[in-house]
């Protein structure tokens, strides 16, 4: 998938040729989401021995405009899972309401909650797939982090087409290009991820957020990060990127006014 949410859900340029965006203009009211409007950028996540670390910055962009700078894109579910949203923010808010009602419904009954991260991911993927099949997609890619029925770390992705996959590390949007390679060197497979400590995983994710802030023009230095284990969720929503070094910027040549 392209790193720009605007590119998601379109025929691939390399297969079908450049997309003619003029078809997006019409005079009548739009019934379905045909393009994302206010968007969130990458979500990154990594499994470790006891759980999963997941992070996303707090920015919602309107095209290239940094429109909302305090949007929380990580959402907890019943102390059992965290969902990280990339893509359209209004669709994220719709899903947020949907999950709240699901949460309420599931809490009824004498036994209380039984939906874990795995169940939640299955549910979300069906919602996405149903909506894409109605040609009325929810323009998001989400990561679901938590633990499964056996209390083992669970991490999986679902997107606007209903495509799902699971891996020791995942990243949406620009993160798929910039963060994923960093995370994969650390956790090339499940065994390696199971050997990571919480501290190592948190450090790696923070490093990824920094790299993304350096290079992703639609990112921000304020972000949310959550650690999910079987014992619960530790969510921090107002983290600042630390120890940045912009010294490299001085060495970049070939842009702007300077000649060499």
């Amino acid at each position: 998938m392209n790193h720009l949410p605007q590119g998601w859900g379109r025929p691939r340029d390399d297969v079908y040729g450049a997309y003619d965006a003029s078809y997006l203009q019409n005079s009548g009211p739009n019934q379905h989401t045909q393009q994302p409007v206010v968007t969130g950028t990458s979500v990154v996540a990594l499994k470790f021995k006891e759980g999963v670390v997941i992070a996303a910055d707090n920015l919602a962009s309107y095209g290239s405009l940094a429109r909302f700078t305090d949007v929380k894109r990580l959402r907890t579910f019943a102390d059992a899972a965290v969902v990280g949203f990339g893509g359209d923010v209004s669709d994220m808010q719709y899903l947020d309401r949907l999950l709240t009602s699901l949460d309420t419904e599931e809490a009824y009954g004498t036994t209380g909650h039984t939906l874990n991260a795995h169940n939640l991911h299955t549910y979300l993927s069906k919602v996405f797939y149903k909506r894409r099949s109605e040609f009325n997609p929810l323009w998001n890619q989400v990561l679901v982090a938590g633990v499964d029925q056996e209390k083992k770390p669970f991490l999986a992705s679902a997107d606007l087409l209903g495509t799902t996959f699971s891996a020791p590390s995942l990243a949406t949007g620009f993160g798929a290009h910039l963060a994923q390679p960093i995370l994969r060197t650390l956790a090339p497979d499940e065994e390696a991820a199971a050997g990571l400590s919480k501290e190592q995983a948190v450090e790696a994710i923070k490093e990824c957020m920094k790299v993304l802030f350096y290079r992703d023009a639609r990112s921000m230095d304020k972000y949310s990060i959550a650690v999910v284990t079987k014992d619960g969720i530790d969510l921090r929503e107002n983290e600042k990127l630390e120890a940045q070094s912009w010294a490299f910027a001085e060495k970049i040549r070939g842009y702007g006014t300077q000649v060499n």
Partner: peptide
Amino acid sequence: RLTYGRAIPLERLVS
């Protein structure tokens, strides 16, 4: 099982 990948809780089914 299809929607949640979960065995339905008995109490739910019985009610």
